[in-house]
């Protein structure tokens, strides 16, 4: 007989392996299964509470503009807090930004304002090891109190210098989940796709700029950080002033981005939300690969 003789009953290894692979696959996919996103089941009441109470029901067919706007966080002017901030500054920032924020190896901080400081510290971009590095998001180095202290100190420096800079914006909470009372989502979507998606990807996954600058993903960003980034423009990103995007529009974008990155992938596992390239990868490696295994089980291996 031929070398691939089948006269001896084979053990069930092949099909059993196949079933096992299928089961493993199934359980992995179940694990990767996002929270079911069913429009019907999630028409819950808005979480926004009081901040939404002023918004009347939006008539169908119109996009409500100006439904919400940004607030501003009060920065402490307590001398004790400022002193604490100064001590932290002298320890961690002064070597690059110079004494009192006058700038040295790194840019001066005399007119940056609280929003920029809060953004750089809460996203973990600062402190940097080397001034040649691109500041990228990471784990924050300071805790909340320390950040508030440094913000208070820089605010004090800027105000003393006569250039207070942009204050820390707050975005009214809402729209973490899909709900009928989120009229700004649509506006945010339109603004995001015109002004932000070219660099950050329509899915917020990030991308690449010239000269090796990485465009970070928006997945970890809070709404406050999004609003800060829009207003401050952490280089190489441009800032957007109130003439380009109103406070309401910034709030709408922050709302939409938060929704985009927190509402789950309806289609299943998102494969990093990087679009057709990872999709092709999955189709070839996973899809065709699995089918080739199946073909190997079914066919001869002679």
């Amino acid at each position: 007989m031929t070398s691939h003789s089948t006269s001896r009953p084979r053990i069930l290894a092949g099909p059993a392996a196949l079933v096992a692979v299928a089961l493993a696959l199934f359980s992995v996919l179940v694990w990767a299964l996002p929270a079911p996103a069913q429009p019907k089941s999630q028409l819950k009441t808005s979480q926004s509470g009081a901040s939404q109470s002023g918004v009347s029901k939006v008539a169908a067919g119109t996009v409500a503009r100006g439904a919400k706007t940004l607030g501003t966080v009060k920065v402490s002017t307590d001398p004790a807090v400022i002193t604490a901030g100064q001590q932290l500054y002298n320890l961690h920032c002064e070597s690059c930004h110079g004494p009192g924020g006058v700038g040295a190896k790194a840019p001066q901080l005399l007119d940056v304002g609280p929003a920029a400081v809060d953004f750089m510290l809460t996203t973990g971009r600062m402190p940097l090891n080397s001034v040649t590095q691109q500041p990228l998001p990471g784990t924050p180095y300071f805790n909340k109190t320390e950040i508030a202290e440094i913000v208070a100190y820089i605010n004090f420096v800027d105000v003393s210098h006569g250039t207070p800079g942009v204050g820390i914006p707050t975005v009214p909470p809402s729209c973490t989940k899909e709900s009928a009372t989120c009229p700004t989502l649509s506006e945010g979507n339109e603004l995001f796709l015109m002004n932000c998606s070219q660099c950050h990807d329509a899915s917020g996954a990030g991308g690449m700029l010239s000269h090796g600058y990485v465009v970070p993903s928006l997945r970890q960003a809070t709404k406050r950080q999004i609003a800060e980034a829009i207003r401050v423009g952490p280089r190489p990103m441009p800032g957007f002033g109130p003439g380009q995007l109103t406070n309401q529009e910034v709030a709408a974008i922050a709302d939409y981005v938060y929704y985009l990155t927190h509402s789950g992938n309806r289609g299943g596992f998102g494969i990093a939300n990087f679009g057709p390239v990872p999709e092709g990868f999955v189709a070839i490696i996973f899809g065709l690969g699995l089918l080739l295994l199946v073909a190997r089980v079914i066919g001869n291996r002679g």
Binding site: Q198, C199, L209, S210, H211, R235, P236, M237, P238
Partner: peptide, 12 residues
């Protein structure tokens, strides 16, 4: 795509 640091526009 607008890179402020190098004043460049980039096509996605």
């Amino acid at each position: 795509l607008f890179n402020v640091l190098s004043m460049q526009l980039v096509c996605p």
